[in-house]
Design a binder for these strands. Structure first.
Lengths: 68, 68
DNA sequence: CCTCCATGTCAAGTAAACATGACACAACGG
DNA sequence: CCGTTGTGTCATGTTTACTTGACATGGAGG
């Protein structure tokens, strides 16, 4: 699933580790989401969107072609 | 996690089974979500919100107290 | 009374979202 | 050179979202 977590994260000058600590997940989880390895849970999607101050749909792109 | 899936579903006069078929999950999954037994995946949340024509946040309530 | 039908729930299994720990590598500054 | 930092990735394990199949119950209708 595509998203612009990385874009928002870099705009704030944060590392994956730092963002992970802020939303309380591992840095591997942040990395896996940024690189599209797996989709976030609804709570993590909410936490990330809320942290960046945007909606879930502006942070994550629900495209039919990359549905599991 | 609280939500008003049931409210929207009943407004459309649908059964859990019918809604499950429409969003392609089992009726037990619909039931479990309505009764708060587990949280939907981000895709199912998206599918349900989209089906009802509302946003994810109007369908699901992210309250800290019922976080897992 | 009988029979659907909708709902609730349980048991057992699978898949995916995480965690943790480890290793590789490139970029940078000392 | 070297040590650190950020990122990518792997292996292993746990938890949870979801499946199928089953059974119980209550309400509505014949």
């Amino acid at each position: 699933m595509q998203n612009n977590v990385r874009k928002f994260r870099e705009q704030l000058g944060l590392t994956q580790k730092q963002l992970g600590e802020l939303v309380v997940v591992s840095r591997q989880a942040i990395n896996a989401i940024e690189t599209g390895k797996f989709d976030p849970s609804i709570w993590l999607a909410y936490d990330l969107a809320r942290f960046f101050g945007v909606s879930i749909d502006t942070l994550f792109f629900f495209k039919e072609e990359d549905r599991r």
